[in-house]
Design a protein around this nucleic acid. Structure first.
Lengths: 195, 195
DNA sequence: TTAAAAAAATAAACTAGATTAACAAATCAA
DNA sequence: TTGATTTGTTAATCTAGTTTATTTTTTTAA
């Protein structure tokens, strides 16, 4: 069933009994988006936290000059939302867009609170997820400061080996904060040095 | 008493009864560090989360070339630790050092878990703090990508108006990921354009 | 199966910010 | 109250990464 990958994922962190699982299912819902569809649009409030069952999303924003900057990618077993908009319930600064057909389990804001109230283990799970997310976000800042673009690209490839094949190269460049032209140059360099 | 600022801070988020406060106090402890002292050292395990009652700390790391990069500053009513080392209990990649005499309330790893078990409201508080921290970390990544060094400096001044006066300028430059010379240039420019 | 659109590569000119070096001010320790 | 250390400035030169422009390759849709 649709929920299976999600329940398996949760099992990695906490054990839920039948009653809790039933509760969790009744307070979340399954949804399918198609390639190109927006889960969240810049300027609108982000109403859901999404757990990705299958597919791939990008989280990006458009700056004043009309340039897109990709903040994160997300694939199966990851979470995807604009957490800032979700927690404050204010307009989002980001877009979340599907790069493939994408199936998700959605938590609304109110339901998430209900879930936490009724299944404290779920709040523990979310706390731990947030800790991890914060660590990797800080790691990214650190890399940004201390690695050259080339080394950041290499780090990205090691860290997220599955993503590069699934998204166009210019989006990887955007994620790295460099131009597609420069990434192209870096790749040419890497190929040359290998042979 | 020493704990007052900490209890006041908590009151902004959740209400604790007398029993809970007593519990919280018995599972945390007060400590004073002096200017220049390290709270955490790169290579050692970070055993505490620290709530700052007074003072100022920097969280930085040394890269392969021996260069220091400041990741965050923290002052009164902020938290300071190497969260990555704290949650994994592995060697820290960062140093936390006092830029002023600094008083903190400390949570050890085990005690934090005990506190969460006995006062679920405290876990909610930490979840919310982590959400906020993640948002501001992501915001920093975004700024890094879309703002010039000058605009990042202006953003920093607005966001953290109290910090610039308390730390040397070259540390602000390090936080911004630019050289002290370039920050000096930026400041000269800003002064000129104002007049 | 083909034409149109999207993605990637290449290269020359350019710029934000780094590096180096020398000097000036401010702070601190005795 | 002075000299030593820490912090900040200025300026010339240099470089990693951008911009702009053109061409090639790949993907997509009908």
């Amino acid at each position: 069933m649709k929920y299976t990958p999600f329940l398996n994922y949760i099992k990695n962190f906490v054990d839920l009994n039948e009653k809790e699982i039933t509760f969790l299912r009744s307070y979340t819902n399954y949804k399918k988006y198609f390639k190109g569809q927006y889960i969240v649009k810049q300027g609108e409030v982000c109403n859901h936290t999404n757990f990705i069952i299958s597919g791939c999303t990008e989280n990006f924003y458009m700056d004043q000059k009309g340039q897109e900057h990709i903040v994160t990618f997300a694939i199966e077993n990851w979470w995807s939302s604009d957490i800032s908009s979700f927690i404050t319930q204010k307009r989002s600064d980001f877009n979340v867009k599907c790069l493939e057909d994408t199936e998700v389990i959605q938590f609304t804001c109110q339901n998430q609170d209900e879930i936490f109230k009724n299944i404290p283990k779920m709040e523990t799970l979310f706390r731990k997820l947030l800790e991890k997310a914060l660590v990797s976000s800080q790691k990214r800042i650190v890399n940004n400061f201390s690695l050259s673009a080339k080394d950041q690209y290499i780090y990205f490839k090691n860290q997220y080996p599955n993503i590069e094949q699934r998204v166009p190269q210019y989006k990887v460049a955007s994620y790295l904060g460099i131009t597609k032209e420069f990434l192209s140059k870096i790749k040419a360099q890497l190929v040359k040095n290998k042979s």
